[in-house]
Amino acid sequence: MQLGIVGLGRMGGNMRERLRAAGHEVVGYDQSPEVTDVASLAELAEKLTAPRAVWVMVPAAVTEATIDGLAEVLSPGDIIIDGGNSRFSDDGPRAERLDRQGIGYLDVGVSGGVWGRENGYALMVGGDQEHVARLMPIFESLKPAGEFGFVHAGPVGAGHYAKMVHNGIEYGLMHAYAEGYELLAKSELVTNVPGVFKSWREGTVVRSWLLDLLDRALEEDPELSSLRGYAEDTGEGRWTVDEAVRLAVPMNVIAAALFARFASRQDDSPAMKAVAALRFQFGGHAIHKN
């Protein structure tokens, strides 16, 4: 099958190579001349045979402009797939706008990171069944081999919604491992922290790919001494908590993991300064001054 891909970074570039290895014809466009196959979106459209399908893998901040640019060079009957981390609430209005031009739209949550080229990508798809069916050869080649790794989650917006919740869960899982690591590292008894995590990779209920990756990180740097305790968030965790508030769903773990990332960016927490001041005021507890 033929596919255009816009955005050839860590994810998009690897997706192009995985699809080519599966026998698909892929034409990629990127602003970086070192990796692009064509010089413009217009040339990308020219290289593809109608009805076209173009997969967008660009940062959320430029997704809207990129899709608008594609809409100018595509034709009725074509399909645009947004595989980036867009907010699900953007998908409905975007699909309606494209539908007025006769262009189909799918939103796809993509998980797999830099390992997807080798292992395959988990795909969560939102949109009309007819569009999903048309793109199934692409989805089958991108997903891992076997039964799992793909879902048609529902109508437009469902793919990004599912990926949002997926990433919220990821926040909680990562933070649980992180808290366990900190406690083990401070223990007077455990002398082989990396070995403990390695031992958990088989036969335990906490085994996972994230645990495998933490083991890999500890092999490279057993005390993680080369890293700062600073963690960004790309938005999905915030959106997940927003939805939990809107729907009155208790989400203690994911919310705590998100707030812990905020705390990681503070060199000297104002909140903890207030806690220290209060402890001193009511109990005379020791304080540390700069």
Results as ranks from 00 to 15, higher is better:
M11V: 14
E17K: 13
E17S: 14
A22E: 09
V26C: 09
V26H: 09
G28Q: 12
S32G: 15
V35N: 05
T36C: 05
A39Q: 15
S40C: 07
L41M: 13
L41N: 13
E43P: 09
A45G: 03
E46P: 05
L48F: 13
P51E: 14
V58G: 13
P59Y: 03
T66F: 12
I67L: 04
A71D: 02
E72L: 12
S75R: 14
D82V: 03
N85H: 03
D91K: 04
G92L: 06
R97N: 01
D99G: 11
G104E: 07
Y105E: 07
D107S: 10
G112D: 09
G113Q: 14
M124N: 06
G127C: 00
Q129P: 00
P137N: 02
I138F: 05
I138L: 08
K143R: 13
A145P: 04
F150S: 15
F150Q: 15
A158K: 13
I169D: 04
E182D: 11
A185C: 02
E188L: 00
P194Y: 04
P194H: 08
V196P: 14
F197N: 10
W200M: 00
L213A: 06
L214M: 10
P222Y: 03
P222E: 04
G229I: 10
A231I: 02
D233I: 00
E236P: 06
G237P: 00
R238Q: 15
V241A: 05
E243Y: 07
A244R: 03
L247A: 00
P250R: 09
P250I: 12
A255F: 03
A263K: 13
D267C: 05
D268Y: 15
F282A: 00
H285W: 09
A286L: 07
A286S: 12
A286H: 13
